[in-house]
Amino acid sequence: MRLGDSDDQLLARVAVGDPAATRAMVARKLPRLLSLAGRMLGDAAEAEDVAQEAFLRIWKQASRWRPGEARFDTWLHRVALNLCYDRLRRRRELAFADPPDRADDGPGPDRGLLAADTGRRVGAALQSLPDRQREAIVLCHYQELGNIEAAAVMGVSVEALESLLGRGRRALRVALADMKG
């Protein structure tokens, strides 16, 4: 793996079947895809499915990719988010057909604030946000995209992105208020 390779350079090597480049691309993008899909879907197994599907799109796209026309990471985020939204839509259809019992994510008398428990509660609070607010937070906070790039991935204006972020984070503050201190 050549550490200095840009995404475009790596993709060009992937396109000609360079196995080292293929492994390097997986090493570079798999954690990012799992982070994105895991936090959008709140389910590790589904996140892996999305990551695998996204990589199939990468392998297919590699020989057609035109460097400079778009940023590869932006394209990849859009692909992965579309795959996540497909799954969220399917979930809603299933939930509509057969509504599940709602899990109690709130604090209970025996709930300690251990790190894993804190993580679970934050995850549950994040999953309870409207999809677009969660998407904005995942892209900006976890994926560390700049506001212009995140807005481009979401297909909204920078102002709309800021509004989604603000509303999402305010809702999280309220949901997690009892965790303070």
């Binding site: 892996e48 990551a51 999280l172």
Partner: peptide
């Protein structure tokens, strides 16, 4: 609070399976 929510870790063999499905020379 957001940092406390860790991303899922790749299961054993996932990266190899994905790489094996990649383009091959020629």
């Amino acid at each position: 609070a957001l940092y406390a929510y860790a991303p899922p870790q790749a299961s054993v063999g996932l990266a190899d399976r994905i790489a094996a499905a990649g383009p091959r020379p020629g």
